[in-house]
Structures are given as C-alpha cells and as structure tokens.
Computed example of a mutant assay.
Amino acid sequence: MSKESEKLADAFRLFDEANSADPNKELWDGKVIPKELLYAQRMTETLNRFEPSASIALQLTARCQHIQRWEIPRNSFEMNRSGYLQWRQALKKYHAEVARKILSEVGFNSSVIDKVEFLLLKKQLKKNEETQTLEDVICLVFLEYYYEAFFQKHDDQKVIDILQKTWRKMSAKGHEAALKISFSEPGLQLVKTAVLN
C-alpha cells in the first residue's frame, strides 16, 4: 500500500469514528447504523461507481461531506428559507473545519487539505469538474437511498420541485446515472413528470 493510500485509509477510519457518534440511527440491511456513518459510506460507494478514477481529495471529500452534521441542528436557525440557507453555509464551514483537523492529524499536505475544503464549500459548481462530480454524487445518493422515503412524506408538487432543483445541479453524466436507478413505479412517475416532460 502506498503512503497516500495509507493516509486515505487512516482518514476514512477517523471520519467514520467521528460519524459513529451520530445519535440518529438508520435501519439498513437488518442493522442499526449511525445515520451519517451510513451516508458517508454510501457517498464513497457511489463515487467509486460514478468516477472510479477520482482524486484523493475528491475521495476524502465524499467521505466527510456530512461529517458530524448533527452538531448543528436545523432548528438552531430560523425555520424559513433564509434560516435554511444560513444553516447550510454554517454546516459547510463546520465540515471543512472538522475535516481540516483530521487531515492535518493524518499528515496530508496543505494542497490536499485546501482542495478538500474548496470542494466541501462547493466552490465553482458547474465550472470546476471535481465540484461538479461531488454534486452529482450527492444527488445520486439522495435519489438512490433517500428519495423514496422523501416523496411519500410530501405532496407531489413539492417533490417535483425538489426533483427539478436536483436535476439542475447535475451534469449530463449525472442525469444518465440517475435514470439507471431502480425507482418504485410511483417514484419513477414523479421523476418522469419532473425531468422528462
């Protein structure tokens, strides 16, 4: 194993240890798993399928994209659009701080750490290839693992609006991958209404 691969494995281990403290749990494959630990593993698996040649920085970013997300709850900001946007910005900065600390501890150089921070802050979406790949993977993870439960809790118009916003964030390659996901029949109908009409 190369030195970089060893550091990557160490960072993944520390990211996973941090996310294992998530008090929120999810049942998956008969096991109860901390929610953000499961999300991080899904991000890595999806990135590996979608972009097998992803850089070390992008692999690291995918794994820590929601690191310790529960530490800044949504209700710590006003429950309106403005509060939501402030919450998202606060989360991005927090994830970048936690990631920077862990990556420094593991021994990554500043250029890798700066790139992970750049990607976590979603800079230059639609312009930077790696930021776009990260966004595609985030959207694919939502569609594959979280969309079915989401659409059952909301009215069709809200779901269609969210799907259209998600679609706009994705690249053509992301769209192609999304349309290969196995949706339920009602879920697929909403996807078709939102993005194929």
Score class of each variant (00 low, 15 high):
Ser2Ile: 10
Lys3Met: 15
Ser5Tyr: 03
Asp10Ser: 15
Arg13Pro: 03
Phe15Arg: 03
Ala18Gly: 00
Asp22Pro: 02
Asp22Lys: 11
Pro23Phe: 08
Asp29His: 03
Lys31Ile: 13
Lys31Tyr: 12
Lys35Thr: 06
Leu37Tyr: 13
Leu38Ser: 03
Tyr39Val: 06
Asn48His: 10
Glu51Lys: 11
Ser55Tyr: 06
Gln59Cys: 03
Gln59Thr: 07
Ala62Asn: 07
Gln68Pro: 01
Arg69His: 15
Glu71Asp: 09
Glu71Thr: 00
Asn75Leu: 13
Glu78Asp: 14
Ser82His: 13
Tyr84Val: 01
Leu85Glu: 14
Arg88Cys: 05
Ala90Asn: 10
His95Pro: 05
Val98Ala: 08
Ala99Tyr: 00
Glu105Gln: 15
Glu105Ser: 12
Phe108Thr: 05
Phe108Glu: 07
Phe108Tyr: 11
Ile113Lys: 03
Val116His: 08
Lys122Cys: 13
Glu129Val: 10
Gln132Met: 09
Leu134Val: 00
Asp136Arg: 04
Ile138Ala: 14
Cys139His: 04
Cys139Ser: 09
Tyr147Phe: 15
Ala149Cys: 09
Phe150Pro: 05
Phe150Arg: 10
Phe151Glu: 09
Asp156Pro: 13
Gln157Asn: 13
Gln157His: 12
Asp161Val: 12
Gln164His: 05
Trp167Phe: 10
Arg168Ile: 03
Lys169Met: 11
Lys169Trp: 08
Glu176Tyr: 10
Ala177Thr: 08
Lys192Asn: 09
Thr193Val: 11
Ala194Phe: 12
Asn197Met: 09
